[in-house]
C-alpha cells in the first residue's frame, strides 16, 4: 500500500525533479569545466615554472663559473696591486728617494722633540 502511494507521488513530482536535476547538472558541468581549466592552467603554469626554474638553474650553472672566474681575476689583481704597493713601500727604495732625490737627512739630536702624550 505504502509502496504504491510512494510510486504515485514520485511520478507526480517527476517534472519538478527533472528540472532541478537539469539545473544541477548544468552547475556541475560548469564546475567540472572550471576545475578542468584550472587544472590545465595549474599544470601548464607548473610546467612553465618548472621549465623556468630549470632554465634559471642552467643559466646559473653558467653564471657561477663566470663569476668565480671574475672573482679570481679581481683577487689576482688585488694581490698584484698589494705586491706593487709593498715593493714601492720598501724602506730601501724610500730611503734612496728621500736621500738621493729629495736631499733629505736624518734629523740630528735636538732637531726632534718628543711631545709628551699625557700618559
Amino acid at each position: 500500500m505504502d509502496k504504491q502511494k510512494l510510486k504515485k507521488k514520485s511520478i507526480q513530482s517527476f517534472p519538478v525533479t527533472f528540472e532541478v536535476n537539469k539545473r544541477k547538472t548544468g552547475a556541475k558541468k560548469g564546475r567540472i569545466a572550471f576545475i578542468t581549466i584550472l587544472s590545465i592552467l595549474m599544470v601548464f603554469s607548473g610546467s612553465l615554472l618548472y621549465v623556468w626554474s630549470r632554465l634559471r638553474a642552467v643559466n646559473l650553472d653558467y653564471e657561477i663559473p663566470r663569476q668565480i672566474q671574475l672573482q679570481r681575476k679581481l683577487m689576482q689583481l688585488n694581490t698584484r696591486l698589494r705586491l706593487e704597493a709593498a715593493t714601492l713601500k720598501s724602506h730601501e727604495r724610500i730611503e734612496s728617494i728621500a736621500k738621493g732625490d729629495l736631499g733629505m737627512v736624518v734629523p740630528k739630536r735636538g732637531q726632534t722633540v718628543v711631545i709628551y702624550n699625557g700618559n
Binding site: V113, I115, Y116, N117, G118
Partner: peptide, 14 residues
C-alpha cells in the same frame, strides 16, 4: 714652537 715643545716635553705637559 720647537722651544715651547721642548719645555713641554721636559715639564711633561701637553
Amino acid at each position: 714652537i720647537r722651544q715651547v715643545l721642548k719645555v713641554a716635553e721636559r715639564m711633561k705637559i701637553v
